[in-house]
Amino acid sequence: PAALALCSFLENHREKVNLQGKKVLELGAGTGLVTIVASLLGASVTATDLPEVLSNLRANVMRNTRGRCRQMPQVAALSWSYNLESTHPSSAHQYDYVLAADVVYHHDFLDELLATMKHFCKPGTAVIWANKVRLESDLTFTENFKKAFHTSLLYEDEDMKIFQGTCR
């Protein structure tokens, strides 16, 4: 559901989030919808998720972007971790946007997710995170997100929220 909300937001608020020609990383890309829409909006996107979902992700992304995008999206494995510097050194990446939808639910890697968001967020990067916020664990993550980043609420509809975070 948050992926749908984020895609709709990105399509309808291009003056707020202009993806044209921007470098984008998606965390927990899952089925790939956000990556596909961001690519159609002109971004150069790298979609990441766990290795076991990449074949379906790649198939969805290729099927929906081939011949429709200036920059074909890339698909890569990425496990959320505290220690990304060894595998993804900060000197080797600079993203304009880090996108994440439906990544906060009942799982044991919320701290690693936040560490991953922080790792890829540099000055000039905006982390845009869309999620339904309902459970206690969701609220805790939201508080930690606000502590980690300068945070603004881009969109809200009942439980559905889209936050933007930039470097502190």
């Binding site: 895609c7 919808l33 829409v37 159609l40 198939a59 429709r68």
Partner: peptide, 18 residues
């Protein structure tokens, strides 16, 4: 643009109109 998404390979199609 119609976007066709498989949730899991070959099952549960979601269609999103961009």
């Amino acid at each position: 643009t119609l976007i066709w998404i498989y949730h899991y390979a070959g099952q549960d199609i979601v269609i999103y109109e961009s």
